[in-house]
Amino acid sequence: MSKQEITLSVNGATHELHVEPRTLLVTALREELGYTGANVGCETARCGACTVRVNGDAIKSCMQFAVQLDGAEIETVEGLAEDGNLAPLQAQFQAHHGLQCGFCTPGMLMTADTYLKDAENPSREEIREAIEGNLCRCTGYHNIVDAIEATLTEGAPTNE
């Protein structure tokens, strides 16, 4: 079908692009715009590897067509670090070995980063519920929960 013109703001930069209606947001980000951080791991909204922020909310970017999001503000994992410095959450993932193969990590970070904006003293069980929509096959989640918890309690790692 004919391509449609849409505008997406990605990490603050505005992009105009032509997409087929069936083009998923994640496909547009990865293949049209080169933001390959978000990954595709399933087609049934289970894995969460594609999670990005859309207008402030964590969303699975393979569960939206790009045309639906004309004018939306998208934030991806590529936007988390500032001036080449890891954000506290990213640094805690490294400090706590909260990633192994890294494929789920961009989505995991975007879910956790969004969650942290409102979270107040969550229990470990609540943190686990917050990342329920992000599968990780490598870590068993323990260290991911540690990293999120540590970001809340100490911000960036203090043991540098």
Partner: peptide, 9 residues
């Protein structure tokens, strides 16, 4: 429902 992302979407 689902998870945070699905509840947002």
């Amino acid at each position: 429902v689902g998870d945070i992302q699905v509840r947002n979407g």
